[in-house]
């Protein structure tokens, strides 16, 4: 499983990353977490509002920072 956090370094991007890391830790998932801050790479994934969460190439979230419990649900779906 590959998780990408898309964002250009705004405060919300950092809190999304923190929440995702926490969710991954609680679920004890074996995943690779990558931060994507290049605008072209963000656009390629179809995202216009950051931060966004992409799992295995699929955009699951954009423009918001959900709680850890919601991210856990998204990741286990």
């Amino acid at each position: 499983m590959k998780i990408e956090i898309l964002g250009s370094g705004c405060a919300k991007c950092r809190s999304l990353e923190a929440n995702v890391r926490e969710a991954v830790k609680e679920l004890a998932l074996d995943v690779e977490i990558v931060k994507v801050d290049d605008f072209a790479e963000i656009a390629k994934r179809g995202v216009m509002v950051t931060p966004a969460l992409v799992v295995d190439g699929k955009v699951l979230l954009n423009g918001k920072v959900p709680k850890v419990s919601k991210i856990k649900k998204l990741l286990t779906r």
């Binding site: 605008f39 656009a43 995202v47 216009m48 509002v49």
Partner: peptide, 17 residues
């Protein structure tokens, strides 16, 4: 749309592209 300048470039690329 949000006024944060960090979202203006992704929207610009998304629109023009």
């Amino acid at each position: 749309t949000p006024f944060c300048s960090c979202s203006s470039v992704p929207i610009f690329i998304g629109f023009v592209g």
